[in-house]
Design a protein around this nucleic acid. Sequence first.
DNA 1: CTCATATTAAACCATTTTGTTTATAAAGTA
DNA 2: TACTTTATAAACAAAATGGTTTAATATGAG
Lengths: 116, 116
Amino acid sequence: MPNDIFSALADPTRRRILDMLADIEELPASQIHEQFQVSPQAISKHLKILLEAKLIIVEKRAQQRMYRINTSTMLAFEDWSRNMRQRWSRRLDTFEAVMKAEMAKAATTPTDPEES
Amino acid sequence: MPNDIFSALADPTRRRILDMLADIEELPASQIHEQFQVSPQAISKHLKILLEAKLIIVEKRAQQRMYRINTSTMLAFEDWSRNMRQRWSRRLDTFEAVMKAEMAKAATTPTDPEES
DNA sequence: CTCATATTAAACCATTTTGTTTATAAAGTA
DNA sequence: TACTTTATAAACAAAATGGTTTAATATGAG
């Protein structure tokens, strides 16, 4: 996973932009800007960063630029977090299985100082 | 989702630390440090940031601090990305359904200039 | 007690980030 | 053509980030 995807997601304004685009299909920069206190230039920069991370895509339409979410990058990102979880949960399952086996063994041969 | 989780994940060194802890159950700071070029102090700072984001947990053991992944935060993070995807995919499904309905309608009443 | 090991804290510095302001560009409208 | 709208680019300042070096702290070993 490229670093710029994570860096792009590190900013709360950019996450709010993605939030909007998760629900609204497509939005021009001006309409995105309406939801924030900062200047339109600041929003334009955020959009540029999201574009470079390929988290969104643009389409020119007259003077406007219509932005929408880039589903393939979002899917790749979801894969990353699922893969992470699979790795530690598999490991914990194994640990749990070992523990259960130990417990079972302990049950059949209860604590016995004379053993062996 | 707290911002410090995303900020913590924005650094490649910190993601590599999480990668290690996804596979290895628990590790002392020194052993984590071995995998990197930077100073132990730099790694200590990264661990502090991961701790503050609750992405990892520590346990003091003699002079060492054993670090492990915090599964609940990791699960919350996975939920965030899944929730994101569910929102845009539901929307796209609806869009697709509408398109199909339009297509079906077009098929039953083929292009016909005389129509109503 | 003294020394070595493991780790964090504090001060400091270079770089990056995020916002602002000013300027520029492209497209529709009177 | 001149004007307005929509948006980006460029220059700049303040704040945050990530690393280093120098101390400081805690714990086990001799």
